[in-house]
Design a binder for these strands. Sequence first.
DNA 1: GCAAATTAATGATTTATTCAAG
DNA 2: CTTGAATAAATCATTAATTTGC
Lengths: 205, 205
Amino acid sequence: MPQTPSTRWCPTPEQLMILEEMYRSGVRTPNASQIQQITAHLALYGKIEGKNVFYWFQNHKARERQKLRRRLGRQHGQLLPGQSTDQGSSTPSSTNTPPLHNQTPHNFLNYQEVTAQGMNLVGKLEAGGAEAQEEDEATAYNSQPWMTMAAVTTMMDGNCSGGGGGHPCCRPPLKTLELFPTKSTGMKDEYCSSSKSSSCSTSTN
Amino acid sequence: MPQTPSTRWCPTPEQLMILEEMYRSGVRTPNASQIQQITAHLALYGKIEGKNVFYWFQNHKARERQKLRRRLGRQHGQLLPGQSTDQGSSTPSSTNTPPLHNQTPHNFLNYQEVTAQGMNLVGKLEAGGAEAQEEDEATAYNSQPWMTMAAVTTMMDGNCSGGGGGHPCCRPPLKTLELFPTKSTGMKDEYCSSSKSSSCSTSTN
DNA sequence: GCAAATTAATGATTTATTCAAG
DNA sequence: CTTGAATAAATCATTAATTTGC
């Protein structure tokens, strides 16, 4: 029996380093293609999946913003509500939701440079022979999960024996196979899930 | 190629009917496997992708709840904040934080039935090739986009290899892909050049 | 020194909000 | 106005740090 069901991804220092570097370079919400590149690269340092990369950027971005926001709040002397240890208590105080909402800064230009840098970093990975499929602009399909399905499926359809070479088992903490659960058991939706019962005694009392 | 500028998916009546039926049956957030089934089924009635199904359920659920909430709010005479016509010109007032937050109804039982029905419905679709998942309880892993990649990849791995073998390839597959558009178009992020390199990493290891 | 109990981080999901095509 | 699509915020859940008692 699997001693470690490995519930969640545990990034290696190298992976983390690369991700942070990318973030610093300006990458914030990579699209499906980019995510695949990144994933492929990071896979050399340990087991990883596309969703991990996706989530990482989501969380990192969100939490950076959160910290920043909190700090700014402090500057204003505004006591930002809760947030401290929202472990599971959530303590729904009537005060919440900081007024800031970042309403689309209307300026989606110029930082293109920054993005370019990030691209560069990622680009190296794909600097092999990718056809620059240009969609002009508009269409800018982006990063969402399902894209992957399409992509992979397509690929599968086109050519599935990519084989690859045979690189040694890099770093993965020998937990190789995963046997994706795919367990449905759809009992997860419903009006509002919460059922928080963390051992933390600090819960909502 | 029917250049379908296809900015967005346009569900056919049949598709919509089926989706609604499923929703009524209790399906709310299908997981990747289910979504694939549903997509495959609906594809018979028109072009459709997994993400369409995903989004449809997301939106439908959210909007049903929204409507409901709005109605309830009306009943109470409570002026629900910024909800009137969330068109886009709702003048975001600084006042928000709806007191209501559905704080765990503490009753996560009995709707099992409903869910089960939904399952059943979907089950029909997939009742052909997958192994019967035993829903026992607990672990209810679910539905998220990236799962798809994993799933498909796994499938690919198992199928492409030779189909029949029966040896669990224990190597992180996705390594074959390398060429991808990577069209940045990252016109959506906001630069956040906050040098950060803390996190937990580096520690002793 | 170590292992159980707490606390803090952070990966993974779900929900709410927003934008824009039709 | 309706609703598909996309993103951000909030939340949940698990792992790693840290503390505490022996």
